[in-house]
Amino acid sequence: MKPTHPILQKCLRQIEALPNLKAEITIAPYVSEKVLADGQLTLYTPQEKIEYICEIKSNINTQTIDQVIQYLTHFKQRLNDNQKPLLVTDNLSNKIVEDLLKKNIEFIDLSGNIYLNTSGLYLLVRRASSRLKDSLKEKDSVKITDKTLMFIFFLLQNPDRSMKFIDSEESLNKQFLNPTTLEIDKLCKLNYLEKRHGTYQIVDYLKLLERWELAYTETLRSQLFIDTFTPINNLTFPDISNLLIQRANNWEYLIGGELGAALATNYLYPITATLHVPENYTRIFVDLKLKPSSTGEITFLKKWTSLDVWKNSDNIKNSNLADPLLIHAELMMSKDERLRETADIIFNKHIKPRIYAYT
């Protein structure tokens, strides 16, 4: 059976890519007298068949991990003896992975972290990249604050205007977010900025972009996350995708994620959307006839800055798209090949020209 939830689909592919393992979703959703869960995953090894009952939990962070562990502990007690709980999630940080391992919570995430531990199978796959390791070392010495991230975002949006014509810290402060000297010094210490002949310059745009996307995945997105929603009345995502586009201007939200990427590229058939919504978002999901759901296809994130919007200099027809930096960061969180291909199109067509404008 093919799973319908995007996270479940992508995590299933992670397991199928491993040698000597066959996996299938046999029931979705899974319902019993004691349990309502997102699906039943059956694993076949050369020696045995293992049944996992899947619980999808998104955006797990240091503030929510204890609740997730407590929930899964109680969840396990409601399962049959031949069943095991499996946490299915998006992207886990090193710290969260360690917490789950200590509590023997089995899991799989979109980035390829996998922990399975049964009598006939032990599997631990860690996907910590060199970038992530570098960032952990970086945090020990120089703290990247929300204000620093916002400053980085502005630099990535406007590398030509923000760096070429700034000849002093005073001029920089007047034009962009009033960053303190401390914020500027942080980026200089981390070798993202340098001062040449009185002018600040980006050392390596791609390196700065990688740092931004890492911070977005690790911390910022979880801070902006509100909830996931699904249409009422058994409607599917394709049934309401046009409505999401039509209502964007009325409710002043920005369209990102897969739907935003589809509108920007005409390459992708979207099955999910990320909406960057204003503070008063309750009216939005009421008007769109959505209901909260842990397996929802529509994610609400708080608007981060007034410049989250895509500046319409790229001949993009829809004026309610999130900036390509946000869309690209969302797509890069996935291991799905088509989403990665779409992210490459976004980068080459809409982000790379900013680099050329700067250089």
Rank of each mutant, 00 (worst) to 15 (best):
residue 223 Q to T: 10
residue 343 A to G: 04
residue 31 V to N: 05
residue 175 Q to D: 13
residue 6 P to W: 06
residue 255 I to A: 03
residue 283 R to E: 11
residue 8 L to D: 05
residue 203 V to Q: 06
residue 64 T to L: 08
residue 186 K to T: 14
residue 253 Y to K: 12
residue 273 A to Y: 06
residue 346 I to A: 03
residue 253 Y to N: 01
residue 143 K to S: 12
residue 251 W to H: 13
residue 160 D to E: 11
residue 45 T to S: 10
residue 136 L to K: 15
residue 81 D to P: 05
residue 171 S to V: 05
residue 165 F to L: 11
residue 181 T to C: 00
residue 267 Y to F: 15
residue 17 A to E: 15
residue 244 L to Q: 03
residue 265 T to V: 01
residue 42 T to F: 01
residue 97 V to N: 09
residue 359 T to N: 12
residue 17 A to D: 11
residue 3 P to C: 15
residue 94 N to H: 07
residue 139 K to E: 07
residue 357 A to E: 14
residue 211 R to G: 06
residue 307 L to K: 09
residue 22 K to G: 04
residue 303 K to Y: 01
residue 216 Y to H: 10
residue 140 D to Q: 08
residue 146 D to P: 06
residue 181 T to H: 09
residue 336 D to Q: 14
residue 168 S to P: 04
residue 167 D to M: 15
residue 18 L to K: 12
residue 234 N to Q: 07
residue 120 G to Q: 14
residue 356 Y to R: 14
residue 22 K to H: 14
residue 209 L to D: 02
residue 281 Y to I: 04
residue 201 Q to S: 13
residue 182 L to I: 06
residue 281 Y to S: 07
residue 17 A to Q: 15
residue 79 L to F: 09
residue 331 L to E: 01
residue 110 L to A: 08
residue 166 I to E: 02
residue 77 Q to R: 05
residue 99 D to L: 06
residue 357 A to T: 09
residue 294 S to H: 12
residue 268 L to Q: 03
residue 124 L to A: 12
residue 2 K to N: 08
residue 353 P to C: 05
residue 333 M to S: 10
residue 354 R to E: 12
residue 345 I to M: 13
residue 227 D to M: 15
residue 254 L to A: 10
residue 312 N to P: 04
residue 231 P to G: 02
residue 344 D to W: 01
residue 211 R to I: 03
residue 21 L to G: 10
residue 1 M to Y: 05
residue 158 N to S: 13
residue 87 L to T: 01
residue 289 K to A: 07
residue 261 A to W: 00
residue 324 P to I: 02
residue 159 P to T: 06
residue 130 S to Y: 13
residue 335 K to V: 06
residue 267 Y to P: 04
residue 354 R to Q: 11
residue 119 S to A: 11
residue 292 P to A: 15
residue 269 Y to E: 13
residue 273 A to Q: 12
residue 24 E to T: 12
residue 11 C to D: 04
residue 66 D to A: 12
residue 299 T to P: 00
residue 267 Y to N: 07
residue 253 Y to T: 10
residue 113 N to C: 14
residue 147 K to V: 04
residue 308 D to C: 11
residue 245 I to C: 00
residue 346 I to T: 01
residue 69 I to P: 00
residue 198 G to Q: 10
residue 201 Q to M: 13
residue 143 K to C: 14
residue 204 D to L: 09
residue 255 I to C: 04
residue 173 N to S: 10
residue 181 T to A: 14
residue 290 L to R: 04
residue 149 L to H: 13
residue 171 S to R: 15
residue 27 I to K: 15
residue 225 F to K: 05
residue 31 V to Q: 06
residue 316 I to K: 13
residue 75 F to T: 10
residue 74 H to V: 04
residue 134 D to M: 09
residue 50 I to A: 00
residue 53 I to D: 01
residue 45 T to Y: 04
residue 276 H to V: 14
residue 286 V to E: 06
residue 283 R to P: 07
residue 287 D to N: 12
residue 130 S to C: 12
residue 153 F to G: 02
residue 106 E to L: 03
residue 330 E to T: 02
residue 126 R to M: 14
residue 30 Y to R: 04
residue 77 Q to L: 11
residue 249 N to I: 15
residue 151 F to W: 05
residue 41 L to M: 14
residue 284 I to G: 02
residue 241 S to Y: 00
residue 77 Q to I: 07
residue 36 L to H: 06
residue 278 P to Q: 11
residue 58 S to C: 08
residue 10 K to P: 02
residue 284 I to D: 00
residue 134 D to L: 08
residue 92 L to Q: 05
residue 125 V to G: 08
residue 217 T to L: 11
residue 48 E to H: 10
residue 305 T to M: 10
residue 82 N to V: 01
